[in-house]
């Protein structure tokens, strides 16, 4: 295995960098887009149903047809990597919109009322009180999206995207087991690194929520986002992600 890796180091490096680049944009985009959707979902019951159900429906779109339809819908070339980015963003939003809705709903009503009473404008309150306090649950959601997006990027090889998924398909076609294994390991590594970076970002951005602080137990704060405690919704099953890895066989 080492021999194959040594001989193809440049290829692996290039594919990894590409893989990371392809994953970052959908992760960031789904985070940003899901926040107004989450806000909307908390306006009333009808909107909540629309956002949540809409998200679930988006998630059921099979990736292959989506790749075929997208160029027609958004006017891109068939082999444009933008197709992949848009498709992954759609899946990301599908998962993240629900997380954002839950995250914003998880913010303590008393705190929100108090900030209104002391003179926050509705927008100021959303940005400076509700959004930061939704942080731990948002973080849990974006971790799921990050991992699933990284796995899904691999499917992009079907539409000619150059990423770690290429190692699966190429390795399978040519019967090089090492290549497939290296592809899987690198995907896992990238997912792990993303996860660690997100958790660390959470620590930096949400210092009040840091584990090990003296007041945590007393205040019964949200459980450690790194371990995903009871206050954080359990990550949904990664059906798509599984399909993504399997996509190398297609």
């Amino acid at each position: 295995m080492l021999d194959w890796t040594r001989a193809n180091l440049d290829l692996v490096r290039e594919l990894t960098i590409n893989h990371v680049q392809l994953a970052i944009v959908p992760i960031l985009a789904s985070f940003v887009l899901s926040i107004p959707l989450g806000w909307l979902a908390n306006r009333n019951r009808v909107l909540r149903a629309v956002v949540i159900t809409g998200g679930s429906l988006l998630y059921t779109i099979p990736s292959l047809p989506l790749f075929v339809i997208l160029p027609i819908l958004i006017g891109t070339r068939v082999l444009d990597s933008l197709n992949l980015v848009v498709a992954l963003t759609i899946y990301g939003v599908a998962v993240m919109a629900r997380s954002a809705a839950d995250a914003l709903a998880s913010v303590d009503r008393t705190t929100v009322e108090a900030s209104t009473a002391i003179g926050y404008s509705p927008f100021g309150r959303f940005v400076r009180v509700e959004l930061p306090l939704a942080g731990p649950v948002l973080l849990a959601g974006i971790r799921v999206v990050a991992v699933s997006t990284i796995a899904l990027v691999s499917v992009g090889v079907i539409i000619g995207s150059q990423n770690l998924g290429y190692l699966f398909s190429n390795g399978k076609q040519r019967g090089i087991l090492e290549e497939v294994v290296v592809g899987i390991l690198m995907s896992l590594l990238v997912a792990l690194v993303f996860d660690v970076v997100i958790v660390l970002l959470g620590r930096v951005l949400m210092p009040w929520n840091r584990p090990g602080r003296a007041g945590r137990k007393r205040a019964g704060l949200v459980a450690d986002p790194a371990t995903g405690g009871p206050a954080v919704p359990a990550p949904p099953k990664l059906d798509k992600a599984d399909a993504g890895v399997g996509g190398g066989d297609a």
Binding site: T110, A114, I118, G119, P132, N209, L221
Partner: peptide, 18 residues
């Protein structure tokens, strides 16, 4: 503006935890 000009204290303080 009105709320900013009036002090408000409530039960359990209503402080911003973050």
């Amino acid at each position: 503006q009105l709320r900013r000009s009036i002090g408000y204290v409530l039960q359990a303080a209503g402080l911003l935890p973050h």
